[in-house]
């Protein structure tokens, strides 16, 4: 077990790193040498063996350390996990989905035994064993959404479907790219996306909402989002911005390769069976620039994407001030040769 998962931290001494294997399977989000918002949804179908798309929920070498970090965040600020009263059923849907998927996809780590509504869950990496009654909150130490998302990498929001809209009425949000669940819980689809620049005018959210309202059971979809993070800090929350904000002003040409990280969100959208809510896992993957450029195609392409990005997006994503230094670093890895289509390493 100890060999499967890294001993690492996402705070203080920041010992997080990716193994060579983790670098090769990193979900590099740019399929071409440029980036602009689009409704880039595709079916969340199983991808190549070993890739982050192989299973419904990817469990990787960072699993145990990420769960430890989540527990620390929640101990400091319990408002990062909230569920409005009508969302409990969706929480059970999510618990079932995750337990069933993990027990099927990673039987050496997770087991689920069911006898009617008497369930027995075994999570070996986290050394958790729980017998409970499905549907009875009093038999779990937390509500169902909180219980299972304390054991699952990635942030989760649960979206209620009513009045031809989606409402973000529950969530476990501790690895967010600078948005506040506590502020946004209860908002409609367009409201919680309100601060995003350029995309509203392009009709992105109108089209995405229309698509998602028609999301079918058993036909999940996925997309990427991305930003930049100084130091491998999973918890870049607005709540703690005064603590981590100064790091953005502390990069030097000597440290940028080690400290600047491409932060990729693999977002999936999954219709839930009983509640008809939509589960929205937002899985965060971090990679240091020094790690990323070990794949020559990615170094070249990231240089071109960052160079050509509209200023509004660099400001919104919070790296406008560091863009010149990032480009100086990345330019060393861009020899101007063409890149192959698609996201995978050559």
């Amino acid at each position: 077990m100890g060999l499967d998962f890294n001993q690492e931290t996402f705070r203080n001494d920041f010992t997080f790193r990716n193994s060579p294997k983790a670098i090769r399977r990193f979900p590099f989000p740019f399929h071409e040498d440029g980036y602009m918002y689009s409704v880039n949804l595709e079916p969340h179908v199983p991808g190549p063996k070993g890739s982050v798309f192989e299973h419904t929920f990817d469990v990787d070498e960072h699993y145990v350390a990420e769960m430890r970090d989540r527990a620390l965040v929640l101990a400091e600020d319990p408002l990062r996990c909230q569920s409005l009263p009508h969302m409990t059923l969706a929480g059970w849907d999510l618990l079932e989905l995750i337990m069933t998927s993990k027990a099927r996809d990673y039987p050496h780590w997770f087991e689920l035994h069911k006898q009617g509504d008497k369930w027995h869950w075994i999570n070996k990496p986290l050394e958790i064993e729980q017998k409970f009654t499905f549907g009875d909150e009093t038999t779990l130490p937390y509500g169902p959404m909180e219980y299972i998302t304390r054991q699952t990498q990635g942030d989760f929001s649960l979206q209620d479907h009513r009045d031809d809209n989606l409402w973000m009425d529950a969530g476990m949000i501790t690895t967010q790219a600078d948005w506040s669940l506590d502020f946004d819980v209860g908002m409609s689809f367009h409201e919680w996306h309100a601060p995003v620049p350029l995309a509203h005018e392009k009709g992105i959210f109108d089209r995405a909402l229309k698509f998602l309202l028609n999301l079918q059971l058993g036909a999940p979809v996925r997309r990427f989002n991305w930003t930049m993070t100084v130091d491998p800090l999973l918890d870049t929350s607005p709540e703690t911005y005064p603590q981590w904000g100064p790091t953005r002003a502390s990069l030097t040409p000597e440290t940028i390769g080690k400290r600047m990280h491409l932060r990729v969100e693999l977002q999936t959208l999954i219709r839930l069976p009983r509640s008809n809510a939509i589960a929205f896992p937002i899985r965060c993957y971090l990679i240091k620039f020094d790690e990323l450029v070990t794949v020559p195609k990615w170094g070249r392409r990231l240089h071109r994407v960052i160079r050509d990005l509209p200023e509004e997006l660099a400001v919104y994503k919070g790296f406008a001030r560091n863009r010149p230094m990032m480009l100086d670093y990345l330019a060393q890895y861009d020899d101007g040769t063409p890149t192959s289509p698609g996201i995978w390493p050559d």
Binding site: D184, M187, A194, P195, Y241, P242, R248, A249, R321
Partner: peptide
């Protein structure tokens, strides 16, 4: 002061302006 507004809290959102450059 952002224009981002929460009906549940009945408030606009305020964010530290000098977080990056105290």
């Amino acid at each position: 002061v952002r224009d981002h507004y929460s009906r549940r809290i009945a408030a606009f959102q305020g964010v530290n302006i000098d977080a990056e450059d105290p």
